Amino acid sequence: MKKILCIVQARMGSTRLPGKVLKEINGHPMIYYTLTSLKKSRYIDEVVLATSNKKIDTPLAEYVKTLGFEVFRGSEANVLERYKLAADKYGGDVIVRVTGDCPLINPIITDNVITKYLMYEDEYDYVRLDVPNTFTRGFDTEVFSKEALDKVYEIACSNKNINKKEFEPFREHVTYYIYNHQNEFKVGVVEGESKYCKDKEINMSVDTIEDFILAESKLK
């Protein structure tokens, strides 16, 4: 049996809304809702938080540990490396990527993406939710093989490319290389119905205080 590992990336140093993942909604930090929702998935074997090794992220790491989740700490800037090393440590064969600023993440929708990947594993290296076209932002889920993650890491973090500025976006955004080099990977998409995306401008992930207020209203 292959292990399905969900790695949730989060940090305290958000530029637009600093400390947002520990900002409380109904008595719980926002990251609580993301992690506990993903815990309800029928297919995810383990949920791990991946944050930076900077001092500012220590309160986040310590809080998440009190919830019973494992925490991996690595490079702040090289998020790709953080994912690669977390996947190595926790033995993920199939990686689910979610960001910590999605307190309204829906485990049923997440499982739908995992299901498509598992059903057609020989056909896909990577499957994503169709955000924002047919799903509202905030339900964002990506599923990919450990082999695909390793391949991107070996390219973007190789001795040849590690100091090249044009490869920085691929290290900062874990799946950006796959998305921009679809000729090198087998890519799938899970599309939703209109009810899941009535307005493309609505953002259920939290980047600003306005987003936070919206998420807060939905969680009451």
Rank of each mutant, 00 (worst) to 15 (best):
A10S: 08
A50T: 10
S158A: 11
L118V: 05
F72E: 13
K40R: 14
E62L: 09
N106D: 15
S41H: 07
G91R: 13
Y117K: 04
K146D: 14
M119N: 10
L49E: 00
Y63A: 01
G138Y: 07
R97P: 02
I213S: 04
E210H: 10
V94E: 07
A86C: 00
P18Y: 10
K220T: 13
T51Y: 02
F72Y: 15
K200S: 08
R171F: 00
K84W: 12
E193R: 00
N159F: 07
N163W: 10
S14R: 05
I114V: 03
N203H: 15
G100M: 09
D122I: 02
F139R: 09
K195G: 01
L129I: 13
V190F: 11
S52A: 05
G27C: 01
V187F: 15
M12P: 00
E172H: 09
C157F: 02
S205C: 08
E81W: 03
F185D: 04
G13W: 05
L60Y: 06
S41N: 09
K84Y: 15
N203C: 12
Y126I: 06
K65G: 04
T99K: 06
A87Y: 12
E76L: 13
D122V: 07
V98A: 02
V94A: 06
I114Y: 05
M12A: 02
I114H: 04
H181S: 04
H173A: 14
V152P: 00
K65W: 06
N106I: 14
K89A: 07
P59E: 09
K218A: 15
I105C: 09
D199K: 06
T58P: 05
N26I: 04
P132H: 05
A148M: 11
C102S: 07
E76S: 09
N112V: 07
Y83F: 10
E210G: 09
L49P: 00
A86K: 00
D93F: 09
M1D: 09
N180K: 03
Y176T: 12
E184Y: 15
L35V: 03
N183L: 08
